[in-house]
Design a protein around this nucleic acid. Structure first.
Lengths: 212, 212, 212, 212
DNA sequence: GATGAATGAGCGTTCATTCAT
DNA sequence: AATGAATGAACGCTCATTCAT
C-alpha cells in the first residue's frame, strides 16, 4: 500500500502519478517498467516517489487494487440482481460488465491480465493469495443456487465449472478485444452478440441434440 | 531465427545452448532472462552467442518454434484419426495430448504460456502474427466437418467456437497443472476425468435440459 | 553545538532527540546513521531537526560532549581522592570507573570508541583537537605528583606514560567488554580482577625480577 | 576474493585498481568509499569492476588480505629470530616492524585500523573471525616459551597479557604516527626510542622498586 | 570461428538538506 | 517555531551488446 502521504496529495498530482504508473506498466509490463520513467512521466522527483510508495512492488500492488475497484464499478451493479434474474442472464451480464470494463479501462485491464499470467514471480503469489479463492467461492455459490433453482444440471463438478467460468471470462475479454482490434471497439450490439455466443455455448453446449 | 552457424554446430553443443536457454527462460521469464546466465549455463562464450543469434529475441523466437515442434509430436498422432473418430473424441484426445505435452515438457509449455499472455511486447506480435491464424483455421475445418457429419449444432459461429476451443485448451492445461500442484502430476486417470469434464461441459453445456 | 533553540526545548522533547540520536549512532555508526531515522525515532519533524542543529555533524559532536559529561559522573568522584590514596589505587579506580561507565552507558561508550578509531574524517580532528590534550595533561600531572611521592620510577618519560595510560584505558574497556560478551557483564568481582591484572602489569611489568 | 579475471589482468591495470581502491578506502573509509569513484580513479568501466569483484565487500576483504601480506614482509623476518633472541628483543622488533609497516604503507595501515575499530558491521565479523584468534594464540605461545626460559614472571595470565600486547601494538603504532605528525616520520632512531620506552614500561613496570 | 573482457546506460533505492506553508 | 513534502545527486549493481584478439 502507498504511504499515507500519497493519499494526502492533491488529486491532480496523485492522478498524475497513477496515470504515469498505469501508462508505464501498460507499456513495459511489470518487469521492465521503470521508476525513473514513471517519475519523469509524472513530473515528480525520484525522491518523492519513495515518499509515496515503499518500493516498486508497492506501487504495482496498488495499481492492481485500483484496477479491482474500478472493475467493481462495472460488475457490482450486476451482482445486485442475484436472485432477481436467472443464472445465465447473470452470467451474461457479468461477462458483459467484464468486457465493458476492459474497453473503458484497457490499461488497467491489461495490467491485470499480465499479473494473472506471470510466472515465477514473488509478487504474484502475494497478490493472488486471497483474490483467487474469493472469485472461485463466489461463482460456486452462484452455481449452487442455480442448481437448487433447477437451472443447472445436477451432475456438475461445481468447483470445476466455477474455475472454467472465470477462465472463460478472461478468454472472452481477450478475444473480444482482439476481434475489435480490427474494428470499432465500443459497439454495444457486437459485444452482446459476442457474449451471447459464449453463454449459448456454455449453457447448451455445441453438440447436436437428438431433439433438434 | 538463429544464424546459419548455429545449425552447423555439433548437436551436443547446440543442445547445450537450447537447454540452457529453456532453463533460463523458464526460471526467469522473458524479461528477466539473462544472456550472461544462459552462456554460463551452456558453457559457451558470450561472443559465440552473438554468432549464433542476432539478439536475445532471436533466441526466444527460436525456442517458441522448437516448443511448437515438440508439441506436434503429441498432437500430430491424434490428428491422424481425423475422420476415423467422432469430433468430441478427437477434441478430447487433443486436449489430453496438450496436457501430456505440458507434463513432459513443462518448461517449453510454461514458456509458451508466458508468451501468450505477454502484453505490449514487440516480440509477441512478431511471433503470433502467423501462428495464431493457423490454429484457428485448423479447428474451423474440423468443426465444419463435424457439422457436416451431424455431430454439431448447425447454428454455431464456427470461428468463434474455434477460438474458444483454443482458449479452453490453454485453460485446461493451466487448471490441470494447478490442480496437480497439490498432488501427483502423472495420473492418466485423473487427467482423463479432468478432460472429460471439460468435454462434457463443452458438448452438452451446463444448463438443465427439459428431457433430463 | 546545537542551536540555541534546542536548549529552549522542554526537557522531554530534548531527551527524545538525544536518545533517538544515541540509538541511531550506536546502531548504525557515524557514517550510516540517518537523519531520517533519527527524526522518526524522536517523533519530530525533519525541519525541526535543522532548527536545532546546523547539520548531522553538529549533532554528532554534541553527543560526544554529552558522553564526556556522563563519563565524568563516573570518573569525577575518583579524582576527588587525589592526594588521599596512592597512585596505583587511583589509577585502578579510574580504570574501574571507565569500565563501569561503559557498562551502564554502553551506547555512549561505543559511539566514543568509534570516534577514536575513525580515520580521515574531518569531524574527528574537529572534536579531538582540544579534548585529547586535556587528558594527557591531566595524567601527566598525576604522574608527576606520584613521582614526587616516590611511587614511580624517576626515569620515565611522563608524557609517553600518560599517553599509554590513556590508550590502555581504552584497551581495557574494550577487552573487558569482549570478555563479557561470553558471560554476565556486571560482576563487580570479575571487573576488579581484570583491572588488577592490568595495574599489576603496568606497575611491575612482566619481566621476571632477580629477587623473585 | 576477487574473481579469477582480476588476477589475469596485466599488472599495470591491476595495480591501478588496487591503488584506486586503497586511496578511496583510505580517504573515505569503508562506509563512504564509492565504487563509482574507484572506477573513475582506476579508469575502468563500472561494469569491469563487477567482472573483477563480486561486490564492494569483496574488494574490501581483498585489500585487507593484501595489507596482511605486506605486513608480513615486515614482521615475518622478525619471527625468524624466535628462539635466537630473548623475548623482549623479539617483542621490540615486532613493534618496530609494525611501525615500519605503518610508515611505509600508511594507507593499508589506516584501512586495517578502521576495520579493527568498526562496530556493528557484518563484514567485520567475517574478516575477523579467524584472524583475531590467530594473533592471540601466537603471542601466548611466545609468552609460554619465555616463561619456560625464565624471562617472565610465572604469575601472569598469559591470555590476558597476549591480548594486551596486541592492543599495545596498535596503540604504539597509533601514538608514534601521531607524534610524527608533528615531525619527520622516518627517523629510525626516534622510532627505536619510542618502542624502547614501551618495552621498558611493559617489562619493568612504572612502579619504583625497593632495590632502586 | 571462438573467445571473454570491456563497456556504459540504466536500474531501484537512499540521503542530507531545503523551503513553502 | 514547527512542519514534512520535495528535491536530485549519488549510491551499489546488472545488463545486452561490442570488438580486439
Amino acid at each position: 500500500m502507498p504511504k499515507e502521504l500519497f493519499f494526502k496529495l492533491d488529486e491532480e498530482k496523485r492522478d498524475r502519478v497513477i496515470n504515469a504508473a498505469v501508462d508505464e506498466f501498460y507499456e513495459y509490463g511489470y518487469h521492465k517498467a521503470s521508476i525513473s520513467r514513471i517519475v519523469k512521466r509524472a513530473s515528480i522527483a525520484k525522491g518523492s516517489f519513495y515518499h509515496y510508495f515503499e518500493e516498486k512492488d508497492d506501487l504495482y500492488k496498488y495499481l492492481f487494487e485500483l484496477g479491482g475497484e474500478r472493475k467493481i464499478k462495472y460488475i457490482g451493479p450486476v451482482l445486485m440482481n442475484i436472485g432477481a434474474v436467472d443464472f445465465f442472464t447473470l452470467l451474461r451480464d457479468t461477462y458483459l460488465a467484464g468486457i465493458r470494463f476492459s474497453i473503458s479501462e484497457p490499461k488497467f485491464s491489461a495490467i491485470g491480465q499480465e499479473l494473472v499470467t506471470m510466472t515465477n514471480v514473488k509478487i504474484k503469489d502475494e497478490i493472488m493469495a486471497e483474490n483467487d479463492q474469493k472469485g472461485i467461492d463466489f461463482f460456486m455459490n452462484l452455481l449452487k443456487m442455480a442448481q437448487v433453482n433447477g437451472e443447472l444440471r445436477l451432475d456438475l463438478d461445481l468447483e470445476f465449472v466455477a474455475k472454467m467460468i472465470i477462465a472463460f471470462n478472461m478468454n472472452i475479454v481477450d478475444l473480444y478485444l482482439k476481434e475489435c482490434g480490427e474494428g470499432p471497439i465500443d459497439e454495444e450490439e457486437s459485444m452482446m452478440k459476442f457474449v451471447d455466443k459464449m453463454i449459448d455455448m456454455l449453457s447448451l453446449g455445441i453438440k447436436k441434440q437428438n431433439n433438434e
